[in-house]
Design a protein around this nucleic acid. Structure first.
Lengths: 232, 232
DNA sequence: TGTGCTATTATGTCTATACAAAATGACTTG
DNA sequence: CAAGTCATTTTGTATAGACATAATAGCACA
């Protein structure tokens, strides 16, 4: 056997099977860790690890003293990876190109300040650029960078490296919020993406923080042919 | 201190801090588990747990014998929960209403068959319905159900229970694929959602399988005010 | 010179034991 | 009867020690 005195994986999978086959039904209490350890012939710690993974996946809910029960509405969650635009494009076998449109230290509109939770006096850098796949516009990027958090951005050469890549390499973050929505392209977005004004566009927004400190707010606009796909 | 002989959380956070503050730089090898355990005054198992969490989060990469290094491109992934429409609406404090528009056993268009990977002869149920939040259209749902996989759907009362909820309770799945995109509303979608034809709409599509067996394909159309938000 | 074996090393996992923390329910007390 | 207290139960986490496994580097040999 491969290492298997008994693997926590095997135990986890067996328990997942019991749940998916309704041997353990939604809402029901399942045996305690001790009992399971005895049943599987493993240490309690091993069973605990298996149970923790199932709990993290949302299949079960655990509470001290109350025990473990099968989740009533298996709160499933899907994951999607956060790619670099360039990798995303090259991953599709297309040629990547990048064009810097503008880059300026600038007073942000109120709404940007508000979303970043910053005061009036904080200096921000505004960068606009375009990512192309096989010479066709793929994504229009409109970004604000908090220069208090990332002062080095003043010296960054965004003509050579897209702010996306530069920030990944130079400004780590610990928190992020993503928003996805459909919108009508405004005139500028439309013409940059080769669409008419009012065309539907797919908009992804991302705000990142390092601890409490806001790093950057970016709005990424895609033509409607864009699809975000993910598997469970 | 709370329980802290030394918590794996504290160790994890301290190591995350070192990474985000570039004390440990991207690509660099960090000390081995033994050394860290000595440094933090903890058991190796505890350090191991902390490291495993960081690895799962994508901050570090670990390989046997080769050691642990800080990830070059922190390939992060975000998670989003898959809610029931009803919960989604009620969670916002709005009143949920549901309207069945049509429900028929029907020959699907070629594209539906293809996406589900089904042959010509497989019987499918086509259900169309509308979900409302505070009496305003919130989501138009257009669904195909594989009756070979879920024969009970023939008898389901979709006037009383939305297919969404009915399936969650009656048709478990193991695999799912999600697609998100922006599109222009066609005439029918537009009028159902109270929008003009050609308005931008946010479209989410989901296909689910139980093992290899396709269960259902659903297209969920939202007005452009809809936002899908998730945090890392 | 290259190829395959082998020792070494770092991570991966398991066990047994112990104590911590949360939640419950029974019990005590005003 | 209400409110607070405490014992009990179940999960949560830490520890030391052991063995497993992957990957590398170096050595031996053809």
């Amino acid at each position: 056997m491969t290492g298997a005195r008994t693997s926590f994986r095997a135990i986890r999978d067996e328990m997942a099977r019991r749940i998916s086959e309704r041997q353990w039904r939604p809402g029901a209490l399942i045996p305690g860790e001790e009992a399971l350890a005895r049943e599987f012939g493993a240490a309690r710690a091993t069973v605990n690890r298996a149970l923790q993974e199932l709990a993290r996946a949302g299949l079960i809910e655990r509470r001290r003293r109350a025990g473990t029960r099968v989740a009533l509405h298996p709160v499933r969650e899907a994951r999607f990876v956060i790619p670099l635009v360039r990798q995303e494009i090259e991953g599709r076998g297309a040629a990547y190109q990048y064009r810097l449109l503008s880059r300026r230290e600038e007073r942000p509109p109120e709404i940007v300040r508000a979303r970043l939770g910053l005061g009036e006096s904080v200096p921000l850098m505004h960068v606009r650029c375009l990512h192309l796949a096989d010479r066709a516009p793929y994504q229009y990027e409109d970004r604000w960078i908090n220069l208090d958090a990332v002062p080095a951005a003043r010296e960054a050469d965004f003509a050579a490296t897209s702010p996306n890549e530069w920030l990944v390499a130079n400004a780590p973050f610990t928190e992020a919020e993503f928003t996805f929505a459909a919108a009508a392209a405004d005139g500028e977005e439309g013409s940059l993406l080769g669409l008419g004004e009012g065309s539907p566009v797919f908009v992804a927004e991302r705000i990142t923080w390092l601890g409490d400190l806001p790093i950057t707010l970016v709005r990424m606009v895609h033509p409607p042919s864009h699809r975000m796909v993910t598997r469970l």
